[in-house]
Design a protein around this nucleic acid. Sequence first.
DNA 1: CCTATATTCAACACATCAGTTGATCAAGGC
DNA 2: GCCTTGATCAACTGATGTGTTGAATATAGG
Lengths: 112, 112
Amino acid sequence: MTFDEAALDRAFLALADPVRRALIARLSRGPATVNELAEPFPITLQAISRHISVLEAAGLITRTRDGQRRPCHLAPNALEQLTSWIDQYRLTTERRFRAIDAVLETVKEQDQ
Amino acid sequence: MTFDEAALDRAFLALADPVRRALIARLSRGPATVNELAEPFPITLQAISRHISVLEAAGLITRTRDGQRRPCHLAPNALEQLTSWIDQYRLTTERRFRAIDAVLETVKEQDQ
DNA sequence: CCTATATTCAACACATCAGTTGATCAAGGC
DNA sequence: GCCTTGATCAACTGATGTGTTGAATATAGG
């Protein structure tokens, strides 16, 4: 599996903001328009609109058209890409740790 | 599972940089000192030192002491936290998609 | 001790980000 | 056609990030 560095930059940066993570959380329960997404937040609609652009540019959400509304949908494939990037290194490290543990266990046995 | 927003900010921001991701990749193969980590990069040692501080503050790595060296170790637990945050929403969305697919399938059958 | 090595700190320049306000565009409803 | 609604664009501000250079700290080793 190979990853586009610039795409990873955009995706992780997009997740590095509590407002955008909250938008992700909301969208995981179903599509929503910009106004609906903005409603719970104490910041301007324009600020939310820009957060949504960031999420879209990162590939984390997609947008459709419904008259004058632009509903947002979460893109689970993009999220899956991120977990697989992380897991690639997490699992390698965990395997290495287990190998070390096994060696320590062997040494301990030989001490006895 | 509940998550510390500020910690997620730091962790995702830490991953939103190609140099820091490369450091993670290197550390997944085993511990390394600051000098060793800096070697492949065309930027100053001080810049790498700061990247390492960012990773440490994000909890993604830990550091030990070996004389005048400060070896870095990847912290797989922190990575696991991130994947579980992402998966929480990814899986919800995928389940919802499958439910919609099932409904569409039913409608299609009834049309026939 | 004295010097070399490993690492960090401090101060600066430059770019990018997150928010604001005010204006603009596009689709709907009457 | 005209006004309202949904959403975006543009320009500006303050904060934060990423790199640099130069100085400082701390341990190692002769």
